[in-house]
Simulated scan of single mutants.
Amino acid sequence: MSWEYFSLFAIVSLCFWSFGAYAAWREKKTVFVHGFTIVGLVVFFIFIVGMWISLERPPMRTMGETRLWYSFFLPLVGIITYSRWKYKWILSFSTILSLIFICINILKPEIHNKTLMPALQSPWFAPHVIVYMFAYAMLGAAAVMAIYLLWKKKQKISPMEMDLCDNLANVGLSFLTLGLLSGALWAKEAWGHYWSWDPKETWAAATWLSYLCYIHFRLHKRNEYRKALVILLVSFVLLQMCWYGINYLPSAQGASIHTYNMR
């Protein structure tokens, strides 16, 4: 499987995800919502597996390859959220967000080869990235919900709506924590130490602490919804810095042990 087939698989997947989102919006039977969305996920995952076999390594080395996983996890999180809380718009948002990342990958293709530097030749590489991408998707859904509640909903925010943000953030932070722990084990194996306060690691710690602050704020200030949502959005901005924004900071140029992400 080569990258040239990405557009074909992506378009087919997006069509199925759109059908699922439309079925959810029109309040059709859940079998149609789940069926269309799951078929789209299977088609997209077939491409990921094909790339994995073709490259003889996990397709996670470049930013384009991590966007590939993010595009896959967004509809997955969308269908999980829909199944649990029946928000009919969540699949539409997850499909649109996935479309954005897919378009970036189509318009800005990267070089995908079998080369894998020694630090990435670790059994912790794949689970670390997969766990992080799933966490990013969960926290991305929480950010979308926060934006909706802050700017689209003028009336009083209900506890049930905040519960959705809380659940998404709690699950996202749980996987973020697993990502940090697996990353520390990977660092110990690759570089001989668990933590070095590398720029990437520093921003990862700041992101984790920010989401932890959101959870503690919700525990002690249950009725201050809008302040909590602002904290949630600030946390998501920090997450973006941790994911790819760090690559553009002077502190990471040549000094970071994670500079392989920029190649």
Rank of each mutant, 00 (worst) to 15 (best):
P58Y: 02
P58K: 01
P58L: 02
P59K: 09
P59W: 04
P59L: 08
P59E: 06
M60R: 06
M60N: 13
M60S: 13
M60L: 15
M60F: 12
M60D: 11
M60W: 14
R61F: 09
R61L: 09
R61C: 03
R61T: 02
R61V: 05
T62W: 12
T62C: 12
T62I: 12
T62N: 11
T62G: 13
M63K: 09
M63A: 15
G64N: 11
G64T: 07
G64P: 06
G64E: 03
G64C: 03
G64M: 08
E65C: 13
E65P: 10
E65L: 12
E65K: 06
T66Y: 11
T66S: 14
T66P: 06
T66Q: 15
R67C: 08
R67H: 08
R67Y: 10
L68P: 13
L68C: 07
W69M: 15
W69S: 14
W69D: 09
Y70H: 14
Y70L: 14
Y70G: 03
Y70N: 05
Y70T: 13
S71D: 05
S71R: 09
S71G: 05
S71P: 00
S71L: 00
S71I: 01
S71H: 08
S71V: 00
F72A: 11
F72D: 09
F72V: 01
F72R: 11
F73Q: 00
F73M: 08
F73S: 02
F73Y: 07
F73A: 04
L74Q: 09
L74A: 05
L74I: 04
P75W: 00
P75Y: 00
P75E: 00
P75N: 02
L76F: 06
L76R: 03
V77T: 01
V77P: 04
V77W: 00
G78F: 01
G78D: 06
G78V: 02
I79Q: 01
I79H: 03
I79T: 06
I79Y: 01
I80Y: 03
T81A: 11
T81S: 10
Y82A: 01
Y82P: 02
Y82V: 05
Y82L: 02
S83P: 11
S83A: 14
S83Y: 06
R84Y: 12
R84L: 15
W85M: 03
W85T: 06
W85N: 02
W85I: 09
W85V: 12
K86N: 13
K86Y: 11
K86V: 11
K86M: 10
Y87P: 04
K88S: 15
K88G: 10
K88R: 14
K88C: 14
